[in-house]
Each structure stands twice: as C-alpha cells, then as structure tokens.
Design a protein around this nucleic acid. Sequence first.
DNA 1: CTGACTGTGTAACATTTGTAACAGTATAAG
DNA 2: CTTATACTGTTACAAATGTTACACAGTCAG
Lengths: 209, 209
Amino acid sequence: MLEVLRENFSHLFEEELMVEISKVGMHLKVNKGDTLMELGSSVTHIPLLIDGAIKIFRLDDDYREQILYFLERGDTCALTLNGCLGKAQSEIKAVAEMDSELILVPAQYMESFLKYHSWSRFVFESFNNRLVELLEVIDSLAFMKLDERLYNYLRDKVLINSNQLLEITHNTIAQEMNTSRVVISRVLKKLELEHRIKLHRNKIEVIEI
Amino acid sequence: MLEVLRENFSHLFEEELMVEISKVGMHLKVNKGDTLMELGSSVTHIPLLIDGAIKIFRLDDDYREQILYFLERGDTCALTLNGCLGKAQSEIKAVAEMDSELILVPAQYMESFLKYHSWSRFVFESFNNRLVELLEVIDSLAFMKLDERLYNYLRDKVLINSNQLLEITHNTIAQEMNTSRVVISRVLKKLELEHRIKLHRNKIEVIEI
DNA sequence: CTGACTGTGTAACATTTGTAACAGTATAAG
DNA sequence: CTTATACTGTTACAAATGTTACACAGTCAG
C-alpha cells in the first residue's frame, strides 16, 4: 500500500505520513454502482481516493436524494471528517461513479495526524473544496432553472468520466436530481432542440462549446 | 480588548492565544443593517463574534440573494477562512441582523495560530458547523416547499432574536429568500390561516408549538 | 391636514415543475 | 422467435411558484 500511496499522494503528503497511513489504512477496490455509505451509517473511516470517482448525495427522510459533488483522485470527503468530529450520523450516501480504488483510514487517526503539516493542510483544503462545492449546489438550487441545472449536471459528468458520451438513463438522472423521469425527458428533449446535447438510447452526448 | 476576549472566549481559547489575538485584532461595533462584506470584496480579516448576530447570504450575478445562516456569539465565518486559504473572492454578503460587536483578526494569522490547539479546534469546529448549516440550506431548497421553508426561516429568526415577535416586512423576507413579495404575502397568509403565525403591520408573530 | 411613500391584500394570469396514463421501441432472456 | 422488461416519447392535466396590476391602509414630512 505504501507504493500506491507514493504513486498517488507524494505531491500531497510527506513520506513519514504515508508510512503511518500505510500502517493503519485499508486498501479497497469498489465497482461502479457500489454504495460505500448509507444513510446514518456511523462514520468510522476517512476515505482517500486513489483512482476513479465517488458521487456524494444528500438524502432526506423519504429517501429522496440530491447529488452534491464528486470525489476524484486525491480527494477526501470532508463530510466524513465532519462526522468524525461532530459524532453526528451523516445523512449522506456515497456511490461509486465508476470502478474505484481507495484507502480507508480509521477515523481515530484524523486528529493525531494533524501534527503532520501536510495532513492538516490536506484536511483544510478538503474542507475548503467541499464548502465551495456545496455553495455551488446552493447556487444551482436557489438561482437556476431545471434546464441549466440539468446541463451543468451533464457537463460535470462529462468531466468526471472524461467522455462526452454519457451512459446513463433518464430515470437515473431524475433520481439523482430529485425530480421525475418525465420531467427529465422533457427537459433533455428541449436541450436537444437547442443543439446542446444529442439523445440516444441509454446514452447522452454532450456537445461542448 | 483582552478583557472582552476573556469574557467571551475563555471557554474556547487558551490564555496565551487570547493575548496574541488582542495584540493584532481590531475591536469593532456595527449597527443593525450594516453590511460587513460585499460581493467579491477581498477577504482580509477573520471575524470573531462577541455579541449580536450576523446573517450570511449567497449572491448570484444578478444580485439576487439567498440567506445561508446566522453567526452568533462565539462563532466565526468559515467562508472567510475559506477565502483566506483559497484566495478566491467569496461571493457572499454579511449583514448585521442586530447591533453587534466583533473582533477582526488579520487573515495572515489564520495559519500561524494553528499551533495553538484551541485555535485549530475552533477552526475545525467552525468549518464543521458551516458544513452542517449549508447542508440544511440544501435540504431546504431541494426537498421542501416554500411554506415549510418560510416557516423554518421565521423560526430561525425567532431563535436568533430571542423574540417571538419579529420586526420584518414581507419585502425583506422575499429578498432574503430570493422570491417575490407577492408570493411571500400569499404564503404568510396561508401560515396565518393554519394558526402558525399572526400577521401585523411590519411585524410577524410566530406561534411556537 | 395633505400628499407622498411604504407595506399589505388580492385577483388574474403566466411559467415552471410534477403526475398519471399510455404507446412504441430496443434489448435481453428464454 | 417470443415474451418480458427497461427505456423513451408524448399528451393531458395538476400544483407550485412567479408576475403584473391595482386597491387600500398606515406613516411620515411638510
């Protein structure tokens, strides 16, 4: 695992910290679609993403969901850190957007690693990134109409997957954005008429400008 | 200023840190309605709230706004910290909800103070609180209808002001929630019919359960 | 007191989003 | 090939929210 850490985190962490992490961390591979954390499950580990992408959702009491952001290589999830400190059950869900690889660090090391400058810097920047992304979600929900929100959602997916051709169904989009399939189909059709996307069965092609 | 710090932050900060803060901090009093930070103004200070309450808004390009949360005694603004680290212009607005008193610490001390355990704990908890509050805003926007959002907004105001009788106009509410006055008047009337509030001129009485 | 202004109530209508129902088409399993 | 299932398109309608317009009541300055 130390090798994996060196390959992926040497620009972030000092050698000594990577050694420490490799002693207590757990190396994990997950498949596309796997759920990593369910509503209210206690937060016992801090994830470090080695490869792939994880999407994070907010859940409400009726199991509706709202996508928040993606974690990518080098990211961690501040909401987890949050859970570590606050001891609160985090009502979020994490699902692998693609086959991914991560290291899980037991939450109790969170604070003790703060003596490493690179770790505290990493944690700070992570909080920072998450705050910014949550603000973007708020912008989207508060100020934008569904067509723009949907287009942004698709653009994000394109970036994460490094592919203009998305393999996704209308139904899945509807769930992730907390609306209904009919509405998504309607708005997608509108975006297609505006030549911003092309629709295929099970696939959506995003036309970049 | 050291006296003021001791009175209000001795449960949070160690003595030595308070001394340091008192050397570089600026003691400030603001009046209800004063704007503390405008869209994109560079973030040069970290605020420590001594007394009163500050409301924080998200702004969009058309100067529409969405209220995020209130800062109270003992709070600081993680979005400011965010600004310190990320060097990004924070597109938020801060307005005094009531007459308030705060200490401004120049942003450059943010990192150096991290050697004080109580400071790094304080900063972490602050990030934490802000994340939780942003998630609540997202819940509100993503999952709730306007009547519930409005009632929650009023309840928050009651808590912050320690007063069931709010002095506020429909128009102000509409601005803070990014909707129109007519809509707010309509929904307020509905809440009144449900006996959850009572309407008066310039005043709204929230009936607690 | 008078006129200007602000705050509130309300009606009529437009737009956006959500829901129900159903048809047609591609795909997969047998 | 046949059947079942998943996916998409579309219509008609409902509900929520936004917009425009206007009436009227309280307040404040002169």
